[in-house]
Design a protein around this nucleic acid. Structure first.
Lengths: 122, 122
DNA sequence: TATACATCTGCGAATATTTGCAGATATGAA
DNA sequence: TTCATATCTGCAAATATTCGCAGATGTATA
């Protein structure tokens, strides 16, 4: 397979991996601190099993890593910078979809990057 | 729907939209200049119909725009910066997949960003 | 050991995406 | 108008993803 094709496929796989609202929310919640599955499930309002499945996928692609503390499984981002990269995607949707008020997008941009700025400052 | 959920969904839609090797190749080919469907089909080694379908999707989400010149349809990126953003995703796969030699990734990074640097310089 | 808690995995049903193909449409040239 | 070129659209089959649920595993505590 030609190299361009190959790299395009790998990039597509990364995009596919992230292309799910729950997984994006997970990355959002993990961008600052590690969390266990239960907490994540509550934050996202999803069943534990479902969150666990998404985490397994992210884990398989080494987007997140796991560490155990007793019976709890704590997850964190392998490369926290991925959160910044993802939120940068907002640049390509703002003002495009009436369904999402651009105020919501601005708020999101703030929430994601504000917290990242805090991290950088601390 | 809570705002975080809403924005996560929009982000997921963008990622889903891009998450296809052909569409990534299309964006790659369009990052410097506009092209017609036939040329793109040859570059990607795909049927015209298939390329046209992918372009229709990108067009619907305003990733690309179309202009007519006689019987040819010329496409270009609405926001060329999207190419830089996409290639930045390579940061999160390098060294992860044995299937893609990291030389291929380095080459790709060069090809995509070299050309972008040229654009910036001109 | 028995029990409860936390998480994971397997699997089938529902849903979404991709693909190729056949036929439409639109433009320009003869 | 007729023909060839360029592109688009509709549709059904193939493929991939998501979802919920039921049961498995692993760990701490009584």
């Amino acid at each position: 397979m030609p190299s361009r094709q190959l790299v395009a496929k790998e990039l597509a796989d990364i995009f596919k991996l992230i292309a799910h609202p729950d997984r994006i929310r997970l990355i959002e919640e993990l961008r600052k601190q590690e969390r266990d599955v239960n907490t994540l499930a509550e934050l996202l309002d999803r069943t534990n099993a479902r969150v666990s499945q998404h985490l397994a996928l992210l884990r398989a692609h080494r987007i997140v890593e796991e560490r155990r503390d007793g019976r709890r499984h704590l997850y964190h981002l392998t490369q926290p910078e991925i959160a910044q990269w993802i939120v940068a995607g907002l640049d390509f949707i703002e003002g495009r979809h009436a369904s999402v008020p651009s105020s919501a997008i601005q708020t999101a941009r703030q929430l994601w990057s504000q917290d990242l700025a805090e991290d950088a400052a601390s």
